[in-house]
Design a protein around this nucleic acid. Sequence first.
DNA 1: GAGAGACTACTCGGATACAGTCTGTCCGAGTAAATCCGG
DNA 2: CCGGATTTACTCGGACAGACTGTATCCGAGTAGTCTCTC
Lengths: 161, 161
Amino acid sequence: MVLKNQVEWALHCCSILAGLPEGKYLATKFLAEFHGLPKEYLSKALQGLSQAGLVESTLGPSGGYRLAISPREISFLDIVEAVDGSRNTFACTDIRNNIPCRPARMKQSKICAVAQVMYDADEAWRSHLRNVRLSDLLDTLEVELPKDFAKACETWILNRI
Amino acid sequence: MVLKNQVEWALHCCSILAGLPEGKYLATKFLAEFHGLPKEYLSKALQGLSQAGLVESTLGPSGGYRLAISPREISFLDIVEAVDGSRNTFACTDIRNNIPCRPARMKQSKICAVAQVMYDADEAWRSHLRNVRLSDLLDTLEVELPKDFAKACETWILNRI
DNA sequence: GAGAGACTACTCGGATACAGTCTGTCCGAGTAAATCCGG
DNA sequence: CCGGATTTACTCGGACAGACTGTATCCGAGTAGTCTCTC
């Protein structure tokens, strides 16, 4: 049970898009070049973000992606689910229904006890991701990133808009 | 990112093995028949439990599996990791190292901020699973399961030992 | 009746196969800005 | 110099392919208990 690479890519790309000047778009080509990723495949991840409404795109020259909403309104969970889907990490197939000695017409109102525990764990994971916003990541990077490196990245990107 | 079916199977099988009379083994064949699962494939999950030391097996007639340790000492996480592996749900490939404008010989002591958030979420998930023990599941089933059903299951199993 | 050998029922592990997902590439359709060209 | 047509640069979406994983199935090797056979 491992998340796909695109999740990592999407998270990093969002942090870049969040730093864009007001109203500007950044092309997939440059996002891919910046992170050393295959452009065409990265584009799939960005399409996922776009369909989820986290990001918006425009066509033509000087087209590309930008955030559709404020970084304060985007959680890690939003990005993860946009790219990786929102299926529960545990898929209960209700194998208790196969038990041969079960009385006919037995009422099975409650959810399977095993599944309940797994669902709770899933919710703990999601809850943690829901409570971290993209803006929190930006704050952390602001502190952790060396100033000269941050500046170099900024000019690199501004040169491509 | 979905856990494999074998995890569900292993959890249910463990709850059955926990109810076995002292010192008795239950064959894979019956565990599979009881849950309506493919015997050969279920055996892979049980092998995983065996390698993790949660379960022990014996060969020959009246052979099979039984718990190797008390249900109080077995957590859900133990079972999940025995079957599904213990790799982190997020695989950081450190794409920040690919950034073209990074200064040469830049010290990158700290862990990637994106990865840190994902690792914390992973730990929240694992922590929840670690805090639920197999004995807790048995307690829940004791309360939730209709008495006649539980009895029917018990006799079904005792008849096969 | 006792002991040795054959038999049986099971686990374990490897080999194999198939399907689905992940990763990645390629290309055509559609679109918006920039450019060109005719009046 | 102005407005329409063309070109360009991009996104979007589908098609496709290879690698890997998940889901099985099958079978042979090894083992522990049981049965049988011989003395």
